[in-house]
């Protein structure tokens, strides 16, 4: 294959990764932005999304698309509910203190992993794609499902943006992010907002996982990579900046896809990590973050 088509193929792979990464990382960024909680268990919400999708698809009879559509609705709701319960029973009791919540979410990470190992098992299991379509380019054929993943991620991200900027609940979240004490002085139940944001962040990770599980496989240890890459993306984009998170996801996803195809996946990870180190040294607030006052 010539260089041009090869680059196009690599870019498409990168875009798929960027789309999934953007969804996952926006959830992490939202949680940090509003709650100031570094959620180390975020990758496990991704894993729970994938595993619950496998269960739902397995349980729903009929065509694969029906089970997948059910998973796309049920898994984010289920994982969001688990996250809201974790928030109300654990993080709230720790008064959302940064150090304590890091330790608590590390604990959650292991609890979720071991529960998945116990009830799902150690095997990686595939989930059938809802449709099988091959898009034929002049130089190569490409998975129609992967292109649908990109489109679905864009739709969800636009939905999140519209929710945050056009709805009253989004306004309340943004006000809480800016000044939680003043928010309370205007009748905002900050505990409820935090539970909602934690649930939304987890549901976004779960949505990303449901979309990706026909490409990867559901496994109880699959949360590690999305967590690491989400942190990389969120640090580069600027903690709490949703716009920065999306741009950084695009940057990391595309570079990972292209470098992995032309060189090696290991080199792609090395470059991403190097990029984080450079951002931390030269622009610690990230590309789109603001310096603390």
């Amino acid at each position: 294959m010539d260089f041009g088509p090869f680059l196009l193929l690599a870019s498409l792979e990168g875009l798929v990764m960027a789309a999934v990464l953007a969804l996952t990382a926006v959830g992490l960024s939202l949680v940090f932005g509003v709650m100031r909680v570094v959620n180390v268990a975020h990758g496990e919400f991704f894993m729970l999304g994938a595993i619950s999708a496998w269960f739902v698809v397995d349980l729903v009879p009929g065509p694969a698309a029906l089970g997948f559509a059910a998973a796309l609705i049920i898994s984010p709701l289920l994982v969001g509910a688990i996250a809201a319960i974790a928030d109300m029973t654990i993080l709230k009791r720790l008064h959302y203190e940064p150090e304590a919540t890091i330790v608590a979410t590390i604990g959650l990470l292991y609890i979720f992993q071991q529960l998945a190992l116990t009830f799902y098992g150690a095997d990686a299991r595939p989930v059938e794609a809802p449709f099988s379509l091959r898009i034929q380019f002049p130089w190569f054929g490409y998975s129609g499902y992967k292109l649908a993943v990109i489109a679905a991620s864009v739709v969800v991200l636009v939905g999140v943006w519209a929710f945050l900027t056009k709805t009253r609940a989004g306004l309340v979240m943004r006000a809480t992010q800016l000044d939680r004490e003043t928010a309370q002085a205007f009748g905002i139940n900050v505990d409820r907002v935090f539970a909602g944001v934690f649930a939304l962040g987890a549901a976004l990770a779960a949505t990303a996982a449901v979309l990706v599980v026909p490409i990867q496989q559901a496994h109880y240890l699959m949360g590690g990579d999305p967590l690491l890459l989400s942190f990389i993306v969120v640090i580069i984009g600027g903690l709490g900046s949703l716009r920065g998170t999306v741009v950084a996801a695009l940057l990391i996803g595309l570079s990972d896809g292209i470098i992995s195809v032309f060189f090696s996946p290991t080199l792609a990870k090395i470059i991403a990590t190097l990029l984080v180190a450079m951002v931390l040294v030269f622009r610690p607030q990230g590309l789109f973050g603001r310096r603390p006052a």
Binding site: R168, V172, R174, A175, L178, G187
Partner: peptide, 16 residues
């Protein structure tokens, strides 16, 4: 709420 508009700041008050 410095990053919210004047209208949005007033909406927060009105919502009470």
């Amino acid at each position: 709420f410095s990053e919210l508009t004047v209208a949005e700041n007033l909406q927060i008050g009105l919502a009470v």
